[in-house]
Amino acid sequence: MVLEEEVQIPLDRQTVFNALNDPEILKQSIPGCEELNLIAENQMEALVVVKFGPMKASFNSEVGLDPSEGPERFKLSGKGDAGVAGFANGSADVRLDENEEGTLLAYTVNIDISGKLAQVGGRLIEGTSKRLAKKFFANFEEALLARQA
């Protein structure tokens, strides 16, 4: 499944880019994120709880960041294991364009969900994923603006 969306954030590109690499901001932004720890440079471990319709899954996730093309571009990839509920593999490619109102983030997210989640929640996964991606950037903007304030 591929999700593509754009979001406008009223802050300059470097600030936005730095925030994408900031575990504290990420923890506040990721919906359902209960723990997030930097375990090595650009390597994080996270515990994320997601609800797909009637099913709740706790993903033990490993996320790798790739800031090498910053601040124009930011990539991450990761996988999450929710035990008997299933597992997820995904990656995100975010392009950051400066404009008059701040920064336009255009993201492409690739995500594959497997296991029981895919069986039971097949029809819910796309909607849930879109909602979560939107929520992430809304939270991200909120956390970032709160820090600036």
Binding site: A118, Q119, G122, R123
Partner: peptide, 14 residues
């Protein structure tokens, strides 16, 4: 099945 081998119709919803 999807290409990952997930059963897409594993409940009476589908």
């Amino acid at each position: 099945y999807d290409e990952l081998g997930n059963v897409k119709t594993g409940t009476l919803m589908d």
